[in-house]
């Protein structure tokens, strides 16, 4: 039985506050600024990735346990697949004659 007492969950609190702030910031960027649409998408996209990382590291403790390294490799590989699927599909289906407009 584990006897180590964990103190106040600062990690979680910081992660929570950060994710709320990042969400609000994304809304601010999207609706209250005059950046071009491309810039807005890049900025809020980056913010989304930061939020995902907060969840992965501060809430899900991805590096924890004996297989921490494997978990990281697994998630990196999955992100690679996600990028291939998303950008590959868009590229294949919206360029050339196949594009439906």
């Amino acid at each position: 039985m584990t006897t180590v007492k964990h103190g106040f969950p600062w990690n979680h609190l910081i992660g929570f506050v950060l994710s709320i702030l990042l969400t609000l910031f994304a809304v601010f960027i999207a609706f209250e600024t005059d950046f071009s649409k491309t810039v807005i998408m890049w900025v809020i996209g980056t913010l989304a990735i930061f939020q995902a990382l907060i969840q992965l590291f501060m809430f899900m403790h991805i590096t924890e346990g004996k297989e921490g390294m494997l978990n990281v490799i697994n998630i990196i590989y999955s992100i690679f697949l996600a990028l291939v699927i998303v950008f590959g599909s868009i590229w294949v289906l919206t360029s050339g004659h196949s594009a439906i407009h």
Binding site: V84, V92, S95, G96, H97, S98
Partner: peptide
């Protein structure tokens, strides 16, 4: 293996670069 799938439908009218 995850990067070759389009070779099953080259003739669908993709752009030359695809």
């Amino acid at each position: 293996s995850m990067l070759v799938w389009v070779h099953h439908f080259y003739t669908m009218g993709n752009s030359a670069s695809v």
